[in-house]
Amino acid sequence: MNIFRLIGDMSHLLAIILLLLKMWKTRSCAGISGKSQILFALVFASRYLDLFTSFVSVYNSVMKIFFISTSLLTVYLMYFKFRATYDSNHDTFRVEFLVIPVGGLAFLVNHEFSPLEILWTFSIYLESVAILPQLFMMSKTGEAETITSHYLFALGSYRALYILNWVYRYYFEGFFDLIAVVAGCVQTILYCDFFYLYITKVLKGKRITLPA
């Protein structure tokens, strides 16, 4: 564990808590893509099956359980409890165009051709693009609430910090996982446009609005 990894994990945790708090306090999931949230739940469910097969640390297990349970809770809140506020008309990204190619790629490019390893690879690839329905939704509505922007910034920062963690681990531990690094870079690149808007607008007290 290094400082980048720790701050990255905390940023990921913060993102999820921010999203849940926003929904709970406003009793609404307006502006949030349910499709992205389903993809994140799928990501965690397929990645953390190793909870049943290998133990790494208490920290590791607690975080995995937290991520799986909160992602399911988020999906539940969106599709059941606060369903009336879900903006499905703007959440029209075709997720099959992500899940099917990513599934195929996980079969073809993986560290080992075994069920758990393929599922892990699938989750890494899927996570890298899971935010696309959310970004697509924002581009359709042309705006994002400030709290949603904070959520996205924390969520995007997490993988960017993981890249620093991988650089650190490569130099000091000789650790290098090509699949995670490439997918992590793709994931971070997808957020760059948003990061720019966040820094130039939200941090100066303005809302994100996009030209039509």
Binding site: S54, V56, N60, F67
Partner: peptide, 10 residues
């Protein structure tokens, strides 16, 4: 050799 099944990262 590192055990690739022991995923330390989240």
């Amino acid at each position: 050799e590192e055990d690739i099944h022991k995923k330390d990262e989240l």
